[in-house]
Design a protein around this nucleic acid. Structure first.
Length: 572
RNA sequence: GCGGCUGUAGCUCAGCGGAUUAGAGCAUCGGUCUACGGAACCGAGGGUCGGGGGUUCGAAUCCCUCCAGCCGCACCA
């Protein structure tokens, strides 16, 4: 089905076009009506005519009587109010549509989403939170839209630190090391290796030799390296399960995966005449970048010691994702500080011909997670905050709150619910603000059931669902008439019909918070309706009509939350 | 120094392809309730949208400038 917005936009575009070729109706949701079209003002300026006159002219040629009543207001706004007939028909269609009005994408794209980027033999901490949560939400959104998503967890599994990590593994003995890593105590593993490296010259030398062996492909060294990687990936999976994130071990395609392609990257750049030797390093100087002295800024592809930096890996990844995976879109969910790096990498990829015009390639940047002091979020002791610790803390708070409200709840059910609430709290807090801004991490606010929080939305959903448990027989949604006599019913109805445009806006801008805003608004419309309109006690046909509004609300909340990676329990 | 980002109510944040009285949540204060989960709903107070200038009939939104803070700027990823 076509969304309300698209229907109106098409009619308006035609009418505006008759008054001024190609004029944009500038259609948007309105507080004074259901929608407003502001395009007459801009068009008036272009035509040199009075805005109201232009607005009247547009209305004269506008055919929307079956959809909405139109009225010219103020300096020349077109206020559009949906007709009862349209609303009833559209809601009826919604009841029969599992996608709740969101049309599947055509054509479907193949989208590579690079997110989470954990590090082998390193703890997952708050620094990974946003990439993981935002990336997973986008992956789910794209999948729901009908696209094919290839998730890529670009883990750090290569480089000089692996010399010391492998030697530390050897010192501990493989069994002992596996135990340490298996317990998820990666901080200790990395820290201990680091301490030895800094304090013990013999260890440092062994580490150096081990790096050489690793890069040289020594079989035993590679075997030990794989132990590290496998144990780490196992641990990542536990963390993802704890967060209810869809990443799997198959999505782990680390830096090392691109090693065999690096020579070809250099060869391609060489052939394209882009490669320049500078201070012994092999660089590309992409157009439009300057350093602090105003000189061209290099992207170092191969270091003077012949080693490869991460720029080479990132270039190889683009080359692989476009050339071999045939991706239509490449998304990198990585923090804002990497902006310049990605801008340079993308530019080089374009100049090298690996990134054709039609392929969307975007750095989906995001801001920092801040502590209460508005500085980078750290523990009191100044250490990085472990992701699992964060979830556990949120779970404990949710469980305490549940124990208070529902003492009757069985222990294991309470614990399960608490994990769902905790995940919702953390994810929603991360997703509900503009991702490019920093945000303050405040667990108390996140897990609160009041306000614009994940738990509030879950509660709103559970509350709707509770109605249906009181029903003696299932309702037939086949022929519901929507009279929408009460203003609260109508507000809820127009909210229900707006999912497609909210989803489309969130997806096209890669801004999940737009969907969050929509869901919170819908939940508020529902509670206002629920407060004002008795459902079960109403007479027919109003009772069925209101039940249908409840049903659609529950479905919309559940779908919207699921697409963000948030569960919607039946009761809580 | 160059480039980028941020500055909106006490606090946390939306809004920023210019447009009808600047919104929400929390907090504060005041109401509602013998209906389906009150973890609710309704209302009030509270803002020179960092300062200044410009474009415009109209600017939180576009341009310039200043202030404050943050980030990046060649061989760590």
């Amino acid at each position: 089905m076509t969304s309300t917005y698209d229907l109106l936009d098409a009619r308006l575009t035609a009418a505006f076009d008759r008054v001024g070729r190609g004029a944009d109706p500038v259609l948007r949701a309105s507080e004074r009506a259901d929608y407003q079209a502001n395009g007459a003002l801009a068009l008036a300026k272009a035509l040199g005519r009075p805005p109201r006159e232009v607005a009247e002219a547009v209305v004269a040629g506008l055919e929307v009587a079956d959809l909405a009543a139109v009225e010219v207001a103020g300096p020349g706004f077109l206020n559009l109010t949906l007709t009862p007939g349209y609303l009833s028909a559209a809601l009826g269609a919604l009841l029969g549509d599992a996608r709740l009005g969101v049309a599947p994408a055509a054509p479907a794209h193949r989208v590579v989403i690079d997110y989470s980027s954990a590090n082998v033999a390193k703890e997952m901490h708050v620094g990974h939170l946003r990439s993981t949560v935002i990336g997973d939400a986008l992956a789910r959104m794209y999948r729901f839209a009908g696209h094919e998503v290839i998730a890529r967890n670009h883990v750090g599994d290569w480089g000089t630190p692996f010399g010391m990590l492998i030697e530390h593994l050897v010192d501990l003995g493989e069994a002992g090391a596996a135990a340490t890593l298996g317990m998820g105590d990666l901080n200790a593993f990395y820290r201990d290796a680091r301490v030895k490296f800094d304090a013990d010259d013999a260890f440092k030398e062994r580490s150096r030799l081990r790096v050489v062996a690793l890069q040289g492909g020594d079989p035993e060294t590679l075997r030990l390296w794989r132990v590290l990687v496998e144990q780490s990936v196992r641990y990542f999976s536990e963390v993802y399960a704890k967060l209810d994130v869809t990443l799997s071990p198959e999505d782990v395609v680390g830096e090392s995966f691109y090693n065999p392609m690096l020579e070809a990257v250099v060869a391609d750049l060489e052939a394209a005449g882009l490669l320049v030797e500078s201070d012994g390093a092999r660089c590309v100087f992409p157009r439009g970048f300057a350093n602090r002295d105003g000189e061209p800024l290099p992207l170092i592809v191969q270091k003077s010691d012949e080693g490869f930096g991460y720029a080479a890996t990132d270039l190889a990844a683009i080359r692989d994702r476009v050339g071999n995976l045939h991706a239509d879109e490449l998304l990198y969910v990585v923090g804002t500080p990497q902006s310049q790096h990605f801008a340079m990498v993308f530019e080089v990829a374009r100049e090298a011909g690996w990134l054709p015009e039609g392929v969307r390639c975007e750095h989906v940047n995001f801001g920092h997670v801040l502590g209460p002091d508005r500085k980078m979020f750290k523990t009191r002791a100044g250490e990085t905050v472990r992701l699992v610790g964060l979830v556990d803390e949120a779970t404990a708070r949710a469980e305490a709150s549940l124990a208070e409200r529902h003492p009757d709840l069985a222990g294991d059910e309470r614990r399960h619910l608490a994990t769902q609430i905790a995940r919702a709290a953390i994810k929603y807090a991360d997703l509900s603000t503009d991702r490019t801004h920093d945000y303050v991490f405040d667990l108390d606010r996140m897990v609160a059931f009041e306000g614009d929080t994940g738990p509030y939305l879950q509660y709103a959903h559970a509350r709707v669902r509770s109605i249906f448990r009181r029903l003696e027989a299932p309702v037939d949604w086949g022929a519901v008439a929507f009279a929408l006599a009460e203003p609260e019913e109508r507000r809820l109805a127009t909210g229900l019909l707006a999912l497609p445009e909210a989803f489309a806006a969130a997806l096209s801008s890669l801004q999940p918070h737009r969907l969050c805003t929509y869901l919170f608004d819908l939940a508020q419309r529902f509670t206002a309706f629920y407060d004002a309109c008795p459902v079960l006690a109403a007479d027919e046909p109003t009772r069925t009509e209101r039940l249908a509004l409840c049903e659609l609300t529950a479905r919309t909340l559940r779908l919207g939350l699921s697409v963000l990676g948030i569960e919607a329990p039946e009761r809580m």
